[in-house]
Design a protein around this nucleic acid. Structure first.
Length: 510
RNA sequence: GGCGGUGUAGCUCAGCGGUAGAGCACACGGUUCAUACCCGUGGGGUCACAGGUUCGAAUCCUGUCACCGCUACCA
């Protein structure tokens, strides 16, 4: 079971356009997926959209559209955003897909048959926007404590899921598996929340119809969260192709924002226990992004679309910035100043310039032909020795989802290469025929270092990794390369032809 | 109110019992292959504050202040 490395993003709610917060999760998931593929794992990387619920129905009604048309019109914005960010998802699930609604119905029927779902009545306050029931004590100034919108008094018949029945099992699982919910601070919050007592969850609605009908009572539609969580199994053919399902499930990693951790860490495991399915191996809640020190919100008008930044900096610089600047588990602040600063200092000056200077010298001194290296000296050995260390560190940091530290480790190689070139000073011996072998060795070593660097960069910046790889004269595709083998010294063949090109990251004015 | 976290160089943060660290910014030196880039060196911190434990505390304990998260409750 679960031979495939299965990584997921949340499915994004179609009422909002994708923004840098949405993309943050997806970019991180993509780096994980690409890194695992680079290591030779079979990977299944899933993202998608969450399309049911009252909010969608209302948004559609405001535009005189039916909900399906409205959702259909929103989905391309997500797909396009993932395309321009070079996201390598293997599938895109929509909760309005037939394959999803079928699975959701099969799943809920199974729980009903088991007696884990019962009919009850709810009377109380309800926030339409958040689709959540509220205690009167939670009401703040007559509004929802979360979104501040007015609340409604409702009385309706609902089906309930016996969450309370599984509370102890979920708690035990979280306590016995320290890696199940991360980071630790979030795990502690989840534990204390469960300990404070869980009540059964209302999982159906009758006040509107935009949802998946309950197979055992067509007057009800499924509560949007119950529906949404099931995307993780509907996309991999639960119930219809169990062979495939078992190859992929359980998920190795659910990446979520901190605001939806509770659904993933409590309700989802309880649902899986009820269905007698294995639990995901790990749920990681990342932090939120502020923009120039302020919470990102429509009312403040500071919501940033990824496209805006990609148009200016390119997809790879975008990806690099968001993975390098922030510590994944905690909140971070996006600012134009730090984006520009990292772009110029780390991408243009450090990496781009390194690539230029090495390739230019090979072109200039050896007509673009990869030279045959001779005996390694102390500086060559020093450079070569750090590569296994960096590989090891990269692996540890990627396992911890510490993308910023992983990239920092990769940049150790960038700096080491720049230092190597300086110390070796190939330009000082370029015109001395008696130093030909020495120059050959320096140029080969620089190129080979650059080639390996391309490989390590690839999960984070796929286009840049590919370009550098090809420019160093590698004819094999980087997509076929695997670490650690491809990171072994000496794969670059003397006699190959290197390629120069436009600067990878042209410096931008401050 | 309860539980938890954070407070370290101008900025962002790492360190979490053994002589204060990184990157950026700043200053100086080297170099000229390269995207006016790279490499090296340096200045800069009573590690929030006050007590305590210890041979020794940024690191452990207690208290205070500030900010943050989760949660509860009163009106």
């Amino acid at each position: 079971m679960g031979e495939v490395f299965y990584v997921t993003t949340p499915i994004y709610y179609v009422n909002d356009m994708p923004h840098i917060g949405t993309a943050y999760t997806t970019v991180a998931a993509d780096a994980v997926a690409r890194y695992q593929r680079l290591k030779g794992r079979r990977v299944f990387f899933l993202t998608g959209t969450d399309e049911h619920g009252q909010k969608v129905a209302q948004a559609a009604a405001e535009r005189n559209q039916n909900p399906q048309d409205w959702a259909d019109s929103m989905v391309p914005h997500f797909k396009e955003t993932w395309r321009i960010l070079n996201i390598s998802n293997d599938d895109f699930i929509r909760t309005t897909d037939n394959r999803h609604t079928k699975v959701a119905q099969v799943f809920i029927q199974k729980l009903k048959d088991k007696g884990d779902i019962y009919l009850g009545t709810y009377e109380g306050w309800y926030c339409v926007y958040d689709e959540s029931f509220l205690l009167s004590s939670q009401i703040v100034d007559g509004g929802c404590p979360e979104c501040r919108r007015p609340v409604e008094w409702v009385k309706e018949e609902n089906y309930f899921f016996r969450l309370s029945k599984y509370a102890d099992r979920v708690l035990k699982h979280i306590e016995e598996n320290p890696d199940f919910v991360q980071p630790e601070s979030r795990r502690n919050e989840v534990i204390s929340f469960i300990k404070s007592g869980l009540s059964d969850q209302s999982i159906s609605r009758t006040s509107f119809t935009w949802g998946i009908p309950l197979p055992f009572d067509a007057r009800h539609v499924m509560y949007v969260w119950f529906d949404a969580l099931l995307n993780y199994i509907s996309a991999i053919d639960f119930g219809s192709n169990m062979k495939r399902f078992e190859e992929i499930w359980p998920a190795d990693l659910h990446l979520v924002g901190k605001e939806i951790l509770r659904f993933h860490a409590i309700i989802w495991p309880a649902m899986l226990f009820a269905a007698e399915l294995p639990l995901p191996k790990r749920i990681f809640a990342h932090g939120w992004l502020t923009v120039e020190g302020q919470k990102m919100s429509k009312s403040l008008g500071n919501v940033i679309a990824p496209k805006e930044l990609v148009d200016e900096y390119g997809a790879d610089a975008y990806r690099y910035y968001f993975l390098r600047e922030f510590s994944f588990g905690i909140d971070g602040n996006f600012s134009r100043r730090t984006l520009l600063g990292r772009y110029n200092a780390e991408l243009a000056n450090d990496l781009g310039n390194l690539s230029s200077r090495v390739l230019t010298m090979v072109m200039k001194y050896r007509d673009g032909i990869v030279p045959e290296p001779k005996a390694s000296g102390a500086e060559e050995n020093r450079l070569r020795e750090i590569i296994p260390e960096i590989l090891a560190k990269l692996d540890v940091k990627m396992a911890a989802l510490a993308f910023n530290e992983a990239l920092s480790a990769v940049w150790d190689l960038v700096h080491a290469l720049n230092r190597y070139v300086d110390v070796s000073a190939p330009w000082s011996i370029a015109s001395d025929p008696s130093k030909k072998k020495e120059l050959d060795t320096i140029l080969y070593t620089s190129l080979e270092g650059l080639r390996i660097l391309a490989l390590l960069i690839y999960p984070f910046m796929p286009e840049t990794g590919r370009k550098i790889w090809e420019r160093t004269g590698m004819s094999e595709k980087i997509t076929q390369a695997r670490i650690p083998e491809a990171a072994n010294w000496g794969a670059l063949r003397p006699g190959s032809k290197i390629v120069t090109g436009e600067p990878l990251f042209p410096r931008k004015p401050e």
